[in-house]
């Protein structure tokens, strides 16, 4: 099943308010899903026999903020969660995206919230912990949202574009 067919299927099931866009003019076409619907959409894609996406190949976050003032086409600031799905039954793949503001309600420091899909695929548990740790996204409904790669008492989220490296950590001097 092609990504455009998956998109048609989702549009019929969830409507245009949940399935925001389909981007086909790219190397791997992707479907943009509204943040509040992502868990339901994933559950549907996982369970429906036509799609049966039984594996989550990758889940990662990306921070879109142009720090270069001279850039000609700066991107609108936002944070993305990218889902790469695969089906071992049908041997097809799909790519989903969720876009949320960089900070919840424009309050710097308040992490944006995306519903967790860890109940759909068990591996999403660790991937979401990593996205929380490095990119700074809160996955609501996650059973154990702790840092995974950085130490528990680390401050900030390193893959944020405006992340400032700490000058000191437990007596270790940085920079």
């Amino acid at each position: 099943m092609k990504v455009s067919e998956v998109h048609a299927l989702l549009l019929e099931r969830f409507g245009a308010s949940a399935i925001v866009a389909l981007q086909e003019a790219t190397k791997d076409p992707w479907i943009e899903v509204a943040a509040s619907n992502i868990a339901d959409v994933c559950q549907f894609l996982h369970d429906d026999p036509r799609t049966e996406f039984d594996a989550l190949n990758d889940l990662c976050g990306a921070d879109y903020l142009e720090t270069d003032a001279k850039k000609k086409n700066p991107c609108a600031p936002h944070v993305e969660v990218v889902y790469h799905l695969y089906s071992y039954t049908h041997k097809h793949w799909a790519k989903l995206k969720v876009k949320v503001p960089r900070w919840q309600g424009d309050m710097t420091g308040e992490l944006p919230e995306v519903p967790s899909v860890s109940h759909v695929w068990a591996i999403a548990d660790w991937h979401e912990r990593e996205a929380f740790d490095l990119v700074g996204i809160t996955f609501t409904g996650h059973p154990n949202l702790r840092r995974i790669l950085c130490p528990e008492d680390w401050e900030g989220h390193p893959l944020r574009k405006d992340y400032a490296f700490p000058l000191e950590y437990h007596g270790i001097r940085g920079k």
Binding site: K27, D28, K72, N73
Partner: peptide, 24 residues
């Protein structure tokens, strides 16, 4: 290019994936 892609290959330990976003 101003595009993004994801590719997995069969490494000895499993499928290693790289996701690269270009911005020009």
């Amino acid at each position: 290019p101003n595009d993004e892609t994801y590719l997995e290959t069969e490494c000895p330990r499993g499928q290693m994936g790289f996701y690269v976003v270009g911005d020009g």
